[in-house]
Simulated assay, not measured.
Amino acid sequence: MTLRQKQGLILLLTVVGLVLALWHPNVVVMAAGIMLLLAASLLYLVWMRCPECGAWFGKYPGDYCKDCGAKIPWDEKTKRNL
């Protein structure tokens, strides 16, 4: 999964969580929306990190890491280390 795909999934979870939490009258569905928002926040903190140094990208990630200066591979699939 590329970083751009991960970013899209986080955005989708955030939007669905907001819709469920704010506009649905059922308390159980609202709680599910809040859980989706929490999951999206956790995934953002875990996934949005520099592959070279591990630094968090922050609010406005660019093309290069702010800490180490490495180019961020937004569209490259990450290699799994087993």
Rank of each mutant, 00 (worst) to 15 (best):
Y60F: 13
P51C: 03
V46D: 10
P73R: 06
W74L: 12
G54R: 00
W74F: 12
C65A: 04
W47H: 09
E76T: 14
A40Y: 06
I72K: 01
L11D: 03
R80G: 12
A40E: 07
A39I: 10
E76N: 14
A31L: 08
C68P: 06
L9K: 10
M30H: 02
G62S: 08
L9N: 11
L22P: 00
T2S: 10
P73I: 01
W56K: 10
C50Q: 11
F57K: 03
H24W: 09
L9P: 02
K77Y: 08
Q7D: 12
C50P: 14
L37I: 05
A40L: 08
T78H: 07
V27L: 07
K66L: 13
C50S: 11
K79F: 13
V46A: 10
P73E: 07
A39L: 14
K77W: 07
V46R: 13
N81C: 09
Y44C: 12
V27T: 07
E76P: 11
G17M: 03
V16M: 13
V19M: 09
L82H: 14
M1V: 09
V15T: 08
V28H: 04
N81V: 13
C68M: 06
S41K: 07
Y64N: 07
K59I: 05
D63Q: 15
G58C: 04
H24N: 12
L18W: 13
L45T: 03
K6D: 01
A39R: 04
G62E: 06
V15L: 12
N26Q: 03
K79D: 14
Y60R: 09
W74Q: 10
A40W: 05
R4D: 11
N26L: 06
L43F: 11
M30W: 00
V29D: 00
L37G: 07
P25Q: 01
C65F: 01
Q5K: 05
I10N: 09
W74G: 13
K59L: 15
M30T: 02
L36M: 15
A32Q: 13
Q7L: 13
L42I: 10
G17P: 05
L11V: 00
A32K: 08
L18Q: 12
L3T: 00
T78P: 05
T2G: 04
G54Y: 00
R80I: 15
G69W: 02
I34R: 08
C53T: 07
D75R: 08
I34F: 12
W47C: 08
K6H: 04
G62F: 03
L45Q: 13
V28F: 09
C53A: 06
G62T: 04
A21W: 02
V46Q: 12
L38T: 06
